[in-house]
């Protein structure tokens, strides 16, 4: 007989597979049915794949960051990883004058992790409350998105889509991105299997996690490095996609009524991937006929921002 927990998990996995198959069918019907051009087919294949994988990685990062910092109000964007990694990528393009992929990946990784370190130390200096993380992150985020904005003018000739990336867009799905994103997704999967139960212990607090055999400092460091690093690379390629990583984990916790990160991280990743894919598809298919190509990141931020405010209100109310 299969154990209780495995049966429960199998049900969740079945639900996820069902969701993914539905998404696949919808994408096929909308995007690939009756398309006669190889070039268009190829473009759409990469674009849809990237939107899904980028969403997956951001949903993963958001849920891991929230668990490790015990804070439902954070994601890569709120913590300033988004704007610092984009800034670093733009700076590298401006200084070295090339749009080499390795260069973008490395610079955004370095930028994003430094940004994370900066916001976390600021937040600790401000007393380490939940709202302190948001405030410190917002400060870092606005500073560097301002700087990125200025730089975007400068590099427009080398990176004609620099503006779209400020909000996050999949308008340039280069073939060469694929190995990076597949590798990043694979790392997410391994980190999920290794970290999920340890992150649960962090939710109980440092003293309890330590006496249950999980060193809180090391675990938090590893979790933040993996989540921060992977989201930085996504941002370097596709721009800051705000609030998605914040909404998805909260949505997963609401839907499955659990704080268990084995469930939350998995479903946050999948929900986030599907949400971003759906948004990109919708902006491309529907809005483009009315107003032209809108960056998917912009649409996601608009909806995500509302959700963020709702959670912020709930949290601040429960503190006060």
């Amino acid at each position: 007989m299969r154990s209780l927990d495995k049966t429960y998990f199998l049900k969740i996995l079945l639900l996820d597979v069902l969701l993914l198959v539905t998404a696949f069918i919808v994408v096929y019907v909308v995007d690939f049915h009756n398309v006669n051009s190889r070039i268009i087919e190829e473009y759409r294949f990469y674009r849809d794949t990237y939107a899904f994988l980028a969403g997956l990685i951001l949903g993963f990062s958001g849920s891991v960051l929230q668990a490790s910092l015990r804070n439902p109000l954070v994601d890569h964007y709120v913590l300033g990883i988004g704007s610092t990694s984009l800034f670093a990528a733009y700076l590298a393009i401006a200084l070295l004058g090339s749009v080499d992929l390795v260069l973008i990946a490395v610079s955004s990784l370095a930028g994003g992790l430094s940004g994370l370190a900066l916001s976390l130390s600021l937040a600790n200096y401000l007393g380490g409350s939940e709202v302190a993380y948001v405030l410190a992150g917002v400060g870092v985020a606005s500073l560097f998105s301002g700087l990125s904005f200025i730089l975007s003018y400068y590099i427009l000739q080398k990176q004609p889509y620099a503006w779209a990336l400020l909000l996050g867009s999949f308008v340039t799905p280069l073939k060469e991105y694929l190995p990076y994103l597949v590798a990043a997704s694979f790392i997410s999967l391994i980190a999920y299997l290794q970290l999920a139960r340890k992150l649960n212990l962090l939710l109980l607090g440092d003293i309890y996690s330590k006496q249950l055999g999980v060193d809180p400092k090391t675990t938090r460091l590893v979790a933040n490095l993996v989540a921060g690093g992977l989201s930085s690379i996504v941002v370097g390629f596709f721009g800051t996609i705000g609030f998605l990583g914040l909404v998805a984990p909260n949505l997963a916790r609401l839907l499955f009524k659990t704080s268990d990160n084995r469930v939350t991280v998995l479903n946050s990743s999948i929900l986030s991937g599907i949400l971003l894919l759906a948004t990109d598809l919708a902006t491309r298919k529907v809005l483009v006929t009315k107003v032209g190509e809108i960056p998917a990141g912009g649409v996601v931020s608009a909806f995500g921002g509302v959700f963020f405010l709702l959670i912020l209100l709930r949290e601040v109310k429960s503190i006060g």
Partner: peptide, 22 residues
């Protein structure tokens, strides 16, 4: 010792299951 509950809600059952980790 005293605990500071995280603002990510953890139910009693979950907390007990988490504490089975060792």
């Amino acid at each position: 010792s005293d605990i500071q509950p995280s603002s990510i809600k953890v139910s009693v059952r979950e907390a007990l299951l988490y504490a089975r980790y060792p």
